[in-house]
């Protein structure tokens, strides 16, 4: 495996992609957040990412992770295609307090289907403390219906420990296969 790994965080707006990268990056995060103007986004946060986030993390074994975050909204899907080029793994964050978390997951599985089939991905479910439903079994049931085998973890996007655990799971899958 190369000593540098590109990972991409994607997921619904407000799911915690920018926070997750900020929680683990060892360099000041480069972000492209601007003021949100639509009510849907403003319900969650005052700013939104319109191009990308970027951070870096060096693991204990010396591997350097280059961490990219995508914008969440579908209208920025051209950035999804740009950012996924050359990536080795994908982290999908889903906001469990959103109106349709399983639907959100479906959207990102569909948009990144080709990439997921070729490499690997993990799913992190955020804000389970605010909304316990759907529970993890609901996510596994949905993935099972689609014959997709990906791990699902409850995570706190602000917690370094939580996000590092998610990344370690993804790297283990990349190194040893799914």
């Amino acid at each position: 495996m190369s000593n540098e790994i590109k990972l991409v965080f994607t997921g619904s707006a407000g799911a915690g992609k920018t926070s997750a990268i900020a929680a683990i990056s060892e360099i000041p995060v480069i972000n492209t957040d601007v003021r949100a103007t639509d009510l849907t986004t403003l319900q969650h946060k005052s700013k939104t990412t319109v191009a990308m986030d970027y951070g870096e993390l060096t693991l204990d074994d010396g591997q350097k992770l280059r961490l990219y975050g995508t914008p969440g909204q579908q209208r920025f899907d051209y950035m999804w295609r740009i950012l996924i080029k050359g990536a080795l793994g994908l982290i999908i964050l889903v906001d469990n307090s959103g109106t349709d978390p399983i639907g959100d997951l479906a959207r990102y599985l569909d948009n990144f289907r080709g990439f997921i089939n070729e490499t690997s991905a993990v799913i992190g479910v955020t804000r389970m403390d605010i909304s316990a439903e759907p529970n993890l079994q609901c996510y596994y049931d949905y993935l099972g219906e689609r014959s997709i085998q990906l791990p699902v973890f409850p995570v706190d996007a602000r917690s370094r420990e939580s996000i590092v655990m998610l990344i370690q799971a993804l790297i283990a899958m990349l190194e040893y296969g799914n």
Binding site: T32, V34, A36, T37, A51, F76, Y78
Partner: peptide, 30 residues
């Protein structure tokens, strides 16, 4: 600034300017 289309004008109906509007916000932010 966060990529929502507001208004457009073009001499011929050549382009899909809603996509360009969103890309405009991305480019300016970069």
């Amino acid at each position: 600034i966060d990529g929502h289309f507001c208004a457009q004008k073009q001499r011929a109906n050549t382009y899909s300017l809603e996509r360009l509007a969103t890309m405009g916000s991305t480019l300016m932010s970069l």
